[in-house]
């Protein structure tokens, strides 16, 4: 039978294309436009070439923020991924516990970012916050407003509280897909708990872990709302991540050129790192 081609089908995807164009492509192109020109308002533009890019790349401000971002994402990932796996392994596989655990796990994910920030901002306050007050009462000198270490700890704990669930849910989905026969075979083969994890559970979780890793990396690398609400980038510039810096530059100082250049660099870094992680993780799978 001859295949019938029907170009009308394209009309079906048209609405999506239009949406994507308005929500992503066009704004992105505007950013590109700003990044290579200079403007003093009045819709007058001057060609600036790659000047803004060199400016950004030569500034300490950019590199400092970038390093903060990398450290933050690194810490987040080294804690959230193992912790998520550990929790998923200990979640019940059947019975009434399953829906209860799933709902509990999903709760933090349902809370909007700025609310999460506000919750922790209040929670950690030494004067009225439960956490801050309790720590102070215990004699621990905790103050995220003027202590760099405390500010970082607060942000990290907050992110773990907010996002470990995502890793847990993804890992759990991977775990429940393992047929019983594997566990039975492991028992017959006399495998230890560690071997079961290493040779049965971890391989089955590999794909979902890759997704969890990428999502958590991208998200933590772009983190904005929570530190903005909790620390506002301080004390000093201690928690000023690229995103916060970007907003300061674009909205605070109205340096549209450098801000646009920074946006593009930022975007490319995320894209590049994600691509590297993805290739490294998938090829280690394929070889040998």
């Amino acid at each position: 039978m001859e295949k019938t081609w029907n170009n009308k089908a394209w009309f079906m995807v048209l609405p999506v294309l239009v949406l994507v164009a308005f929500s992503a492509v066009i704004p992105l192109m505007t950013v590109v436009n700003y990044s290579v020109q200079d403007t003093f308002g009045n819709n007058e533009f001057f060609w600036a070439g790659t000047d803004w890019f060199t400016d950004v790349l030569e500034s300490d401000r950019f590199w400092d923020a970038l390093i903060r971002n990398l450290i933050f994402s690194g810490i987040i990932l080294t804690i959230e991924i193992p912790l998520g796996i550990l929790i998923a392994l200990n979640m019940p596989k059947k019975g009434l516990g399953v829906p209860v655990c799933l709902v509990l796990m999903a709760l933090p994910l349902l809370i909007p970012w700025n609310v999460v920030g506000t919750i922790w901002q209040v929670f950690g306050r030494v004067d009225i916050g439960l956490l801050g007050y309790a720590l102070a009462a215990l004699g621990i000198n905790y103050n995220y407003v003027n202590n760099v270490f405390d500010a970082w700890v607060t942000l990290i704990v907050m992110d773990i509280w907010h996002w470990t669930s995502l890793v847990v849910l993804l890992c759990y989905a991977g775990l429940v897909s393992i047929p019983d026969a594997y566990y039975q075979a492991a028992k017959i083969d006399g495998a230890s708990r560690w071997s079961v994890f290493r040779y049965i559970q971890l391989p089955k979780m590999k794909r979902v872990l890759l997704i969890a890793f990428l999502l958590r990396f991208m998200d933590s690398f772009m983190i904005y709302t929570e530190p903005f609400v909790v620390t506002g980038g301080g004390p000093g510039n201690a928690t000023t991540f690229l995103s916060i810096d970007l907003v300061k530059m674009a909205v605070g100082q109205f340096d549209l050129g450098p801000a646009a250049a920074l946006s593009i660099i930022y975007f490319l870094i995320i894209l590049l790192l994600s691509w590297i992680f993805y290739t490294v993780m998938t090829t280690s799978d394929a070889q040998k």
Binding site: P179, Y199, I200, P203
Partner: peptide
Amino acid sequence: AQVFQFPVIYDT
């Protein structure tokens, strides 16, 4: 020792 109806192998 038991050999199962659905073959189980350790992929990795």
